Amino acid sequence: MKNETDFIVNFYLPILASVIIFFVTLLAPKFLAGIKQPTIETEIRLGIVGFKIPLSLWVKNIALTKAFCYVLSIALLIYAFSIDFSRYFPALLKMDVYYDVNGIERTLGRLDSQDRAQLDIDKNWHSGVEEYDRDVVVNIQSLWTKQGLPNYWPENVPPRPYFSGSGQATFVVERTAFLTYKIVESIGKLTYSTTSPRNEVKTFSGASKLKPTAASYIRPTIGQLLAKQSVLIMPEFMQIFGAGSVHDGMANGEYDHALIAATKISLLPMPSVGDTVFLWRSKTGKWVPIAYAIYR
């Protein structure tokens, strides 16, 4: 609640003041011409330095008055969009990850056509999902064999409907310039579980770590914020599978493959993080959606 109040004060109030000043300046100055000898003095203060200008001077110099008000309106607007948006996002995200194809389709359906085009998804991505499953399951089973562990994967069971993960991820963002941000840390730690009928529930650990790439930068434009109020980020992660506790999954696991986490970040009306679609690059060079995350 404190963050919401702070955001309203630092973002919406300057915009409201900017709009009021702009339209008052545009529509109201004519009534000042009828004032004969105004005795009111206006005070302009910059920090501890202030000076007073008689209203009569403003009335006699309407062009100067309007120019000053327009500059003030623009300055308030720039101030609103120059605040550090990263302050209003949580540094730790609790998440549940699912792999069912219907859920992936629903999550993709929440993205608009421009966002989906930006993802460059393979038209035959359902086949790509099967390729990913074969490749990853073999790699996981090979890892467990090397570590002398039993096969956690249920035999003769399609994995996706019965496979899920739960855990948390850090999300640390820093502002580097005006409307330019960088994700400087993001580490996810998950406990995966397979829950299939008439089979023992089996769990194993995994982790994901931000891979330093240019995709870690977030550069929304003012026009984009006004038109869509959101921006699609696509940072790249290293997917790590391990065994044992989720807390030591990073230490015991091996880097298996890279994923991008396509996430819609809303800056307006209030900063928030939308659901994530995880994508894997197939042999065709296109991206294949293989999972989705819901934050709680």
Rank of each mutant, 00 (worst) to 15 (best):
M1H: 14
K2G: 08
T5M: 15
F7W: 06
F11V: 02
I15D: 07
I20D: 01
F22V: 03
L26K: 03
P29K: 04
K30D: 14
Q37D: 13
T39P: 03
I40M: 13
G47C: 05
V49P: 00
G50M: 03
F51P: 01
I53P: 00
I53V: 14
S56N: 09
K60A: 14
A63I: 12
K66C: 09
F68C: 09
L72Y: 11
L76W: 02
L77Y: 06
Y79Q: 11
A80F: 01
S82R: 11
I83R: 08
D84L: 04
S86T: 06
R87D: 13
A91F: 11
A91S: 15
A91M: 12
L93Y: 00
D96H: 10
V101T: 14
G103T: 06
I104L: 13
E105V: 13
L108S: 09
L111W: 08
D112V: 02
S113Q: 14
N124A: 09
W125G: 03
W125C: 07
E130W: 00
E130T: 09
Y132G: 01
D133Q: 10
D133I: 14
R134A: 15
V137S: 07
S142Q: 11
L143R: 00
T145K: 15
K146G: 07
Q147F: 02
L149R: 11
L149P: 00
P150A: 07
W153Q: 07
E155L: 15
E155W: 10
N156Q: 15
V157N: 06
P158C: 10
P158G: 06
P159G: 10
P159Q: 02
P161V: 02
F163M: 11
G165L: 14
G165V: 06
Q168T: 10
T176W: 06
F178M: 00
I183R: 04
I187H: 08
G188V: 08
Y192M: 14
S193R: 11
T194K: 00
T195M: 15
R198D: 11
E200M: 12
K202P: 00
F204G: 05
S205N: 04
A207Q: 06
S208A: 14
L210C: 05
L210M: 08
L210G: 02
P212V: 03
A215G: 01
S216Q: 15
Y217A: 12
I222E: 09
I222M: 12
L225R: 04
L225W: 09
V231E: 13
I233A: 03
M234A: 08
F237S: 07
M238F: 12
M238N: 15
Q239C: 11
F241R: 04
A243L: 09
S245M: 05
V246C: 11
D248V: 06
D248H: 10
G249P: 05
M250E: 12
D256F: 14
H257E: 08
T263W: 06
S266L: 09
L268W: 00
P269K: 00
M270G: 00
M270I: 01
P271I: 08
S272V: 01
V273Q: 04
V277M: 15
S282N: 13
K283F: 05
G285D: 07
A291T: 05
A291Y: 08
Y292S: 02
Y292V: 01
Y295G: 02
R296K: 03
